[in-house]
Amino acid sequence: MSLDNIEDGHEYVIAKLKGLKKVSAPDNFEYRVMSKLKSPAENSSGTKRKLFWGIIPLFIFLAVVGILLFSYLPVKYKDPAVQKSQPVINPSQKISNSLNHSWKDGFKANKNLIPSTGHSEEGGAVNKQMTDSGSKSRDSMINKGKQNSPGKSKLPKNR
């Protein structure tokens, strides 16, 4: 057998490879494997791995449920057509309007603090009370005047 010829060379290589010394495992190999399998560190890493792969589907499920909840969440419907029909306001006008509104709002809020002018219902009642008492005093004064006025009483009735 020589290495120059292809066929012979192949035969030579095969013979050499078959003649290689067999490599064997160390003496304590089985003990090392078994102690590794029984070691708590190896077992805990295995359980951790199992736990990790067990959590992933749960996480995916929760994510899907969350997405569905968000997408089907009831929200107040706003008609886009209504929004479009609103008149376009000039920015300056808008500012004045907003100022007016704020003034009006302030006024409405403080309305109860302003003393009544008689326009309100409560004020009207008070006013009525006041006018009633006023008319009564006026009548009594007229009657007194009728009794005390000498000219009128001295005038002959049948003249």
């Binding site: 290495l3 120059d4 060379g9 192949h10 095969i14």
Partner: peptide, 10 residues
């Protein structure tokens, strides 16, 4: 593989 090995050994 054998051919490569043959060349290398040669």
């Amino acid at each position: 593989g054998r051919a490569q090995l043959q060349k290398l050994l040669k």
